[in-house]
């Protein structure tokens, strides 16, 4: 399982996301996010957008990655359905990613995600890899 939505909040949407490594966790988090924003299964991969993000910690990197994707929906007017993420750690964590999708359209629109919250936010290493809990403000 890549991610699952959690029954927790009345107004917002929370999900738990999994990955066998950090990169897959970040890719699956982005998939869950776009499952809220649009009808992700219908989104073709005809456009590509690159992202480079740095952060002090892995948790902060995950938040900033999802925030950058939310902003990209407005600025680049794209819905994404596939992600390729690379993460390096030197002094800071650095993410380089490619996101693939198509121009936004009302026909495939879902819900506006206003932001990524800190509500019960958690990123942890597990026996199988990584797990995170993320809540989106709707």
């Amino acid at each position: 399982m890549k991610y699952k939505f959690i029954k927790d909040l009345t107004s917002d949407v929370a999900f738990e996301v999994y990955g066998k490594n950090k990169e897959e966790l970040f890719e699956n988090s982005a998939l869950a996010l776009f499952d809220i924003i649009c009808e992700i299964k219908k989104v073709r991969q005809e456009k590509e957008k690159n992202f480079v993000i740095e952060a002090e910690g892995l948790e902060d990197l995950l938040v900033r990655w999802l925030e950058a994707l939310i902003a990209s929906v407005d600025i680049d007017e794209l819905f994404f359905s596939k992600f390729e993420v690379k993460i390096e750690k030197n002094k800071k964590y650095k993410l380089e990613a490619k996101a693939f999708g198509e121009p936004t359209s009302t026909e495939k629109s879902g819900t506006v995600v206003k932001g990524i919250t800190r509500y019960k936010f958690k990123l942890e290493k597990t026996k199988k890899g990584y797990k995170a809990r993320i809540c989106c403000d709707i």
Binding site: E77, S105, T106, S109, V112
Partner: peptide, 8 residues
């Protein structure tokens, strides 16, 4: 009045 996530 444009409505929806993808509206411009």
């Amino acid at each position: 009045v444009p409505c929806g996530v993808g509206s411009k």
